[in-house]
Write a protein that binds this DNA or RNA. Structure first.
Lengths: 147, 147
DNA sequence: CTCAAAATCACCCGAAAGTATGACGACAAG
DNA sequence: CTTGTCGTCATACTTTCGGGTGATTTTGAG
């Protein structure tokens, strides 16, 4: 900012000097005053425009438009995960249950036996204090364990 | 934009007229050429600055800040409800299922027999193309039928 | 009033889910 | 090396779900 003013001042000084020179030259050779005025006008207009641009260049109006995002990225609430003491496997199975898969489908997906899925889900229900898988899903969603 | 150029041109014209007047006045009364030049310089510098400001005024930086919408009031997607052809009762039962209630608990809550709940839920699953209640819940949530 | 949709209930049966118990191997921590 | 957790699997049993069928009552629109 101050730098610009300084530059502006220097330019003004230089111009005055230039004007003096021009004045004597042109006046002596009897040139019309219009050329002189036009020159001054052009130069100062240019400087003015330049100054105006410089001054407002960084003055950008920041418009903050807040956009509601319905589907946030979702990250698992690790704190709750620890509170419930869920193992990674149990958490994984909770997700699949929430997706509406049956025990058999989960078993197929994870390449384990259906019995394994049952033991996992049983322990899962215990830890979540759920009596049914739908209840587990509901608790899981509320606690931020699953999307 | 064009408007500005027009205004600028008009100003220029006016100034030339003004200059003519000033010229004769000041020349006649033998005033120094510096005052004339300074005036022109000042006016054109001002116009230049003004123009510069006008030209760059609209440099607005739009910052889009994504804000996770806190807790929407949630309203049932009536359109989807009709698409699926769910009756009020079926929709009600879907909600209770999503809350993790068993058929028996739902029956108790609605003061109907467990069989009734079963027939309702059966038709519900048919309409939602769900094979299990967990799947029905998942579909229901996706479709905005339930919170 | 009449008809259709909605809501209610019952019974049966097979499938799925959930409980209980026990067991085995892997692996990390003490 | 021992202990504990985790993941795996099995067997047996109970409960819940879901499908199918049929029937009655209620209710709202025509």
């Amino acid at each position: 900012m101050k730098k610009h003013i300084l530059i502006y001042g220097i330019c003004g000084g230089l111009l005055i000097v230039a004007l003096k020179v021009i004045e004597y030259r042109f006046l002596v050779v009897e040139h019309s005053i219009e050329i002189y005025g036009g020159l001054v006008a052009a130069v100062f207009a240019a400087v003015g425009i330049w100054l105006g641009l410089k001054l407002t260049k960084k003055k950008e109006t920041v418009v903050v438009r807040e956009v509601p995002v319905p589907a946030q990225p979702f990250s698992v609430n690790q704190t709750r995960l620890q509170e419930f003491g869920l193992t990674p496997r149990e958490h994984e199975i909770l997700e699949l249950i929430a997706n509406g898969l049956s025990n058999r489908e989960i078993a197929a997906k994870l390449f384990v036996s259906e019995n394994t899925v049952k033991t996992h889900s049983s322990r899962l229900f215990d830890k979540l204090s759920a009596k049914r898988r739908t209840q587990a899903v509901q608790i899981g969603k509320e606690s931020g364990l699953i999307p």
